[in-house]
């Protein structure tokens, strides 16, 4: 629990740093609040990047279907799957960015962290895409 973002440790380490030090974009996006432990911000950044790579994997999957699958699938199925994968990638990328902002805001106000609604999208999207592919490949 030492890394729990619910319990910022800044109060022991340093006087609260207020938003007055922020400028421009950061101030507008993050709003007010107290600076969290820098480790939490960096952990949030790495989590965001992991989601971005997940989104990129979906983009690559969609493009790969169009570029490599050829006649393995009927064209409608292939294009449908590729469009779905690209859409899921876009939703995950947008959701990851919003989630990163919401987490930064929550940490600055010691609020409970928001649930990751992109996680079920990832799970359902990957399951459906895989299911459709298996069905098309295995069914006569």
């Amino acid at each position: 629990m030492a890394d729990s973002p619910h319990e910022p440790e800044h109060s022991e380490r340093t006087p609260p740093q207020h938003l007055a030090q922020r400028t421009g974009l950061s101030a507008r996006v993050l709003g007010g609040g107290i600076e969290p432990d820098p480790r939490f911000t960096l952990a949030n950044e790495r989590t965001f990047l992991a989601w971005i790579r997940t989104a990129l994997a979906f983009l690559a999957g969609g493009v790969a279907l169009e570029a490599f699958a050829g006649d393995v699938f009927p064209v409608v199925v292939r294009t449908g799957l590729a469009v779905a994968l690209l859409l899921i990638g876009m939703v995950i990328a947008a959701g990851a960015t919003l989630r990163w902002i919401r987490l930064e805001r929550a940490m600055r106000h010691s609020l409970p962290l928001p649930l990751p609604w992109i996680a079920p999208i990832l799970a359902v999207g990957a399951a459906v895409a895989t299911g459709v592919m298996l069905a098309v490949l295995l069914l006569p």
């Binding site: 340093t14 974009l25 969290p36 820098p38 960096l42 950044e45 990047l49 960015t97 930064e104």
Partner: peptide, 14 residues
């Protein structure tokens, strides 16, 4: 120690 949110980098990347 203080947070270092890379707001511009994150939004641009997304």
């Amino acid at each position: 120690p203080q947070g270092s949110p890379k707001v511009g980098s994150a939004i641009a990347l997304g």
